[in-house]
Write a protein that binds this DNA or RNA. Structure first.
Lengths: 255, 255
DNA sequence: ATCCTCAACAATGCATACGCAAAGGGATTC
DNA sequence: GAATCCCTTTGCGTATGCATTGTTGAGGAT
């Protein structure tokens, strides 16, 4: 059943495995807002379902009844319901009474919305980082992510690049010190995960993005808040636009 | 115990009723994301609890057990639990096992976070509005809100001004066409509701804010996206900073 | 042939029941 | 008198049952 769904989805949008690798799922489960070790069954259900959805184990558009999911996860309906409520607020599924949950597909308009949100939030994060008393302190994770991106470009390894890109963006959001902002970035980042993995295979190596990241990081370390913000905003506008047009040109109706 | 907590909180921050008026609660219940007519008991519980919290019926810091709330709303624990999960994701309460839910107090740091988020999101909304093909179309709600603010300033009616301010900001977020952005603005707006009402009584009439709103609206109608964004960003930075320092100077530890 | 109506079924939303684990209180000991 | 340990109570997490409600399919009528 699993594999059937997987292969169906893979055929539809033309890819084998959407997830970067197993580690990525693992990492998300640990670093993400949701999966703090999952002490309770409801948390566990939330984390597992989220992982399933992000990794295309439950492809977009698929419908599942509460009882199906309960059976599948070996739980009763109660914790499943709680997990579904949370997934709904995460913007990953819609709950339609009598039809179970539906994994929300992403259309180009969603990606446009998401990139507009990131275009406003992330430059603010960069600005906040740059405005700290010691702006160059604590940037090691971002430095590491930048270097990893550069290495990945040199080695032409797209998956490694995507991992480093994720590390940079989420790291920046978390480091900026604004937990609400970080949560919002994380939320839309997860929503757009499938689309990002998809476009990764449809476009040339993101050389330009890599250098832009490096420049933003330099501006932050130099404490030039205005410059960091503006550089980041332009980066987001450009890359978001590119990504949306890749999706539109690729002809897939949704991801 | 309840009333004891209530009066304690009221005494601490020196006000009887935080809500603007009954209509405001009513309006929020209808326009808000949450309260779409509340067909199900869980939605109803969510809407009623949110209203209670925002209007200080459940003052910040108060703890309630699930069973208390169930008794109070005349429901069983099940829909209450679902409502609490949603309120937690709304950032209004924290759920601490064995101690029930706790209404999250706002400290100055929270307000800073919230204003940083608004400072990034709302200028984007203005920019998006200004970039529409016909930028001056559909701005009537914002025009009305601006006029209402100006009338309120002339009549020195702070509550009316706050209502109009809310109408302007939420209207702008909803009109911009980005539902994710609108949802995020709404979320932090609700989180900061109590603090906004509080500071309203602690500061002079917001004459400057009113004219700034008008200028932003003009820039939008003129289709000058860059100007609209920048004007709005400066407005938010200034007013957010003012609000935070009012709270800090007022000496209240939390709201 | 198509549309409408009615009935049966199925999924959900809610209430309730149960077991576990933690917190608080009381008692005992040092 | 204080601290620690044990017991009791109680709140929560989960499961399950029931009733409501919407959906779907079949049959009849136009």
């Amino acid at each position: 059943m699993h594999t059937q769904r997987d292969s169906l989805a893979a055929a539809t949008i033309g890819m084998e495995r959407m997830e970067l690798d197993q580690d990525a799922a693992q990492r998300r489960r640990c670093t993400g807002i949701a999966g703090r070790h999952a002490t309770t069954a409801a948390e566990l259900a939330h984390a597992r379902l989220k992982t399933l959805i992000l990794d295309n184990g439950l492809p977009p558009g698929s419908q599942c009844l509460e009882s199906e999911l309960a059976l599948r996860l070996g739980l009763s309906r109660t914790p499943i319901r709680e997990a579904l409520v949370r997934l709904q607020q995460d913007g990953l599924v819609a709950i339609t009474p009598r039809h179970g949950m539906r994994v929300l597909p992403l259309i180009a308009a969603d990606m446009r919305e998401i990139y507009e949100v990131l275009t406003s939030l992330e430059p603010m994060a960069a600005e906040l980082l740059a405005r700290r008393p010691d702006p160059s302190a604590g940037l090691e994770p971002l430095e590491a992510a930048c270097s990893a991106m550069e290495r990945a470009i040199a080695a032409r390894e797209q998956l490694a690049w995507a991992r480093a890109d994720e590390a940079f963006h989420l790291g920046l959001a978390e480091l900026c010190g604004n937990r609400r902002l970080a949560g919002m970035v994380m939320q839309v980042w997860e929503q757009s995960h499938r689309a990002r993995i998809f476009t990764l295979q449809q476009r040339p190596l993101p050389t330009r993005s890599t250098t832009e990241h490096r420049h933003v990081l330099r501006a932050i370390a130099a404490g030039d808040a205005e410059r960091a913000r503006e550089l980041y905003r332009r980066h987001r506008r450009r890359s978001g636009g590119e990504l949306v047009s890749i999706i539109e040109r690729s002809g897939v109706a949704w991801l």
